[in-house]
Amino acid sequence: MDPFVVLVLCLSCLLLLSIWRQSSGRGKLPPGPTPLPVIGNILQIDIKDVSKSLTNLSKIYGPVFTLYFGLERMVVLHGYEVVKEALIDLGEEFSGRGHFPLAERANRGFGIVFSNGKRWKEIRRFSLMTLRNFGMGKRSIEDRVQEEARCLVEELRKTKASPCDPTFILGCAPCNVICSIIFQKRFDYKDQQFLNLMEKLNENIRIVSTPWIQICNNFPTIIDYFPGTHNKLLKNLAFMESDILEKVKEHQESMDINNPRDFIDCFLIKMEKEKQNQQSEFTIENLVITAADLLGAGTETTSTTLRYALLLLLKHPEVTAKVQEEIERVIGRNRSPCMQDRGHMPYTDAVVHEVQRYIDLIPTSLPHAVTCDVKFRNYLIPKGTTILTSLTSVLHDNKEFPNPEMFDPRHFLDEGGNFKKSNYFMPFSAGKRICVGEGLARMELFLFLTFILQNFNLKSLIDPKDLDTTPVVNGFASVPPFYQLCFIPV
């Protein structure tokens, strides 16, 4: 058959498939802009700032609406009420993970971030239990974070109060905490193996944040037939998995079943207990991918939040002064901060919360999916439909947070200066898919920041009023603009 005829037939089939998918069930789905064949609503979305586009569309179609990214149908949730109703009140029905062709290629359905069903539930339950087990290797997770915080302070001392970009050092600290939990080992910041790991993690975040990856996920045929950065992403992930597998083999040879040292040991012990169960989800494949998931999810998000926190503290020296006064009063100079201190430091706690609220790190979270046909607000959402959640619409709700575009710790303080919780605080998402490392991340943010401010004054290279804190939105995360500062020993 003539190649031209084959091409026309293929394009015609794709067009018909697109029209059929977009028209099927439209009477039951939430409203939304009319999609174009094949490309859907992509032309109506700013790929570099999806969150802003969703906010604009919500003003037209309401808090629940339908979009098509290519052939992929998505239902968008915008605003606290619908997000709570879906992710919390109907948590089980909305607990699936959205379709990610690239991740599915890399992870093969294993791990904790992109798995679904029984596998996801069992691996998540085990990971939560293990991360909360403060007795691994007779050292609590808090001990590990405190140790890394001391190392971080010593690295900052080496800058000798000269101007520096904190990106690298602030990236090393949370990565080392995860390494300590998974591998029972922290690395020197100049260790070549550690630097290679950091390089792969950072490069992957840069790649994932590009519009090209959005295109690959919406048109998965590209993955096999086109060159691009997605190939580098898959190569980096394969490198990390190979490295983790080597460490798993080392653990198998040296493990003491009665004295687990780290996450890998705990997983291997669980595998041993379930070795007679042919349906067990505790396999080497799941261990390797879960460890890679924890490394990827637990490094860049925390380091970016820390980097943004220091920029905001530079911009608002009056806030920094209040935090340091609270540190001096509650902790002093002669001991290290600990998590028990947080309950006695409402202002510092409010500042950490406000940093996370203000920066809105992951504006749309990772997409969910419905696990069955769901009736939601008089609409029928078919099983498997991807759910896109606007966390921006919750964290920047102007009824809950007056002047949401302003950095103001009073958003989390009552009139008496006591810490005030808010149900709208969802930087880790909400419901059954809430970030498994939430507790660890909150511990790291509090301890790293208090250790830094206990030991250093922060000095800006320019007038604080002239510092730009506008986030650089890159399609996946909101990151701070480049800046330098000086760490002046107190």
Rank of each mutant, 00 (worst) to 15 (best):
I284S: 06
F376P: 00
H396T: 08
N403D: 15
L15E: 01
D360M: 03
S422F: 02
P37H: 01
I434Q: 13
Q454H: 07
P211W: 13
D468V: 10
G228T: 05
L71E: 14
E318N: 15
L461V: 14
E253D: 15
L15A: 11
V374H: 01
L467T: 06
N231P: 05
I47S: 13
Y308C: 08
F183I: 05
S393H: 01
T283F: 06
R157Y: 13
G96T: 05
N423W: 06
R108A: 08
F428L: 02
R21L: 11
Q356H: 08
I207L: 14
I381P: 00
H396S: 09
I452T: 08
T290H: 01
R410G: 09
P464W: 06
I434G: 06
F114D: 05
N277G: 10
P101I: 07
L152M: 12
L71M: 14
Q192H: 15
G62R: 00
Q184D: 15
N398S: 14
H316G: 02
P464F: 10
I42A: 12
G111Y: 01
D46P: 06
P35V: 05
V82R: 03
D143P: 07
D265H: 02
L67I: 12
Q324R: 12
G296Y: 11
W120P: 02
P33A: 01
K48A: 11
F263N: 01
I462Y: 12
P31S: 04
E354S: 01
S390D: 06
N204K: 03
L234Q: 06
S58E: 05
F263E: 00
L57Y: 10
F65L: 05
P464G: 09
D46R: 07
R97S: 02
W212H: 08
L295G: 01
Y379M: 08
L67S: 02
P346G: 05
K59T: 10
K399V: 15
S23N: 12
D397H: 04
A292L: 15
L447K: 05
A149D: 02
F282G: 01
E85K: 07
D265M: 02
E104A: 15
F476L: 11
T229Y: 13
L43H: 15
I47A: 14
E326W: 02
P382S: 05
G111S: 04
F446V: 02
F267K: 01
E122T: 11
V113M: 14
F194C: 05
I222Y: 07
E85W: 05
P166C: 05
R108S: 07
L201C: 05
S51V: 07
F263A: 03
I88W: 07
P101T: 09
E274I: 07
P481S: 10
N277R: 12
C372D: 10
I182G: 01
D243A: 15
E285R: 14
I289H: 08
Q279K: 14
L87Q: 04
I362H: 05
L7S: 10
H230M: 06
T299S: 14
N217I: 09
T450H: 03
R433W: 01
F4W: 11
D46I: 03
A106D: 04
L9N: 00
I331C: 13
R139A: 11
A238S: 14
F282Q: 02
V394Q: 03
R139M: 11
L391M: 07
G111P: 03
Q276N: 15
S209N: 13
V436Y: 04
C151A: 14
R307P: 00
F451V: 15
L268A: 04
E281A: 11
D408A: 05
A161P: 04
Q146V: 14
P337Q: 01
Q278R: 13
D414C: 09
G298Y: 03
S429F: 02
V472R: 13
C164Q: 11
G135W: 14
K235E: 10
N133M: 09
C164F: 12
I269Q: 08
E274V: 08
D463K: 13
T385R: 00
E142R: 05
K48L: 08
V177D: 03
S180P: 02
R157M: 12
A103Y: 14
I141L: 13
S12C: 14
M339R: 07
K121R: 12
F376E: 00
L7C: 09
V208L: 14
D188W: 05
A441N: 03
T55D: 15
L395P: 03
E318V: 08
F65H: 04
R119E: 06
N204T: 09
S280K: 08
M406L: 13
P37D: 00
E155R: 06
L29E: 07
V436R: 00
L413K: 00
D46G: 13
V83R: 02
M255L: 15
F407A: 00
L453G: 04
R125S: 12
G117F: 04
F282Y: 11
P35G: 08
C175G: 10
G431V: 02
Y379I: 02
I462S: 15
K84T: 10
T304E: 10
L312G: 01
T55E: 14
L313N: 00
R410Q: 11
R329D: 09
Q279H: 15
T210I: 06
T167M: 10
H230V: 08
L201R: 04
Y61W: 15
I362A: 07
L311P: 01
S303Q: 09
T130R: 10
I222H: 04
H316F: 10
V472D: 10
F110W: 13
L391H: 02
P382W: 00
P427E: 02
H316R: 07
H344D: 15
G475M: 15
I39Y: 05
F412M: 03
F65T: 04
S422M: 02
I381A: 00
W20E: 01
E354V: 02
L306H: 00
K322R: 11
I47M: 13
E241K: 10
G96M: 07
K420F: 05
P163Y: 12
W20H: 08
L54V: 10
I269G: 09
L17G: 10
L170K: 00
P427G: 04
D265L: 00
K48D: 08
E405P: 03
L380M: 13
P63Q: 09
E203N: 07
L361M: 09
L310D: 00
S336H: 12
L7F: 12
G25F: 08
L314Q: 06
Q279G: 12
K235T: 14
V208Q: 15
N398V: 13
F446P: 03
V394N: 03
E326Q: 01
R307A: 09
K247V: 12
R26G: 13
A477R: 15
I213L: 13
E444M: 03
S51Y: 05
L380V: 12
P427D: 02
R377L: 06
F183C: 08
I244N: 02
R307C: 09
Q278K: 12
R433L: 03
T389R: 01
K52P: 04
T469D: 15
K322A: 08
L128D: 12
T470E: 13
S390V: 12
V113E: 05
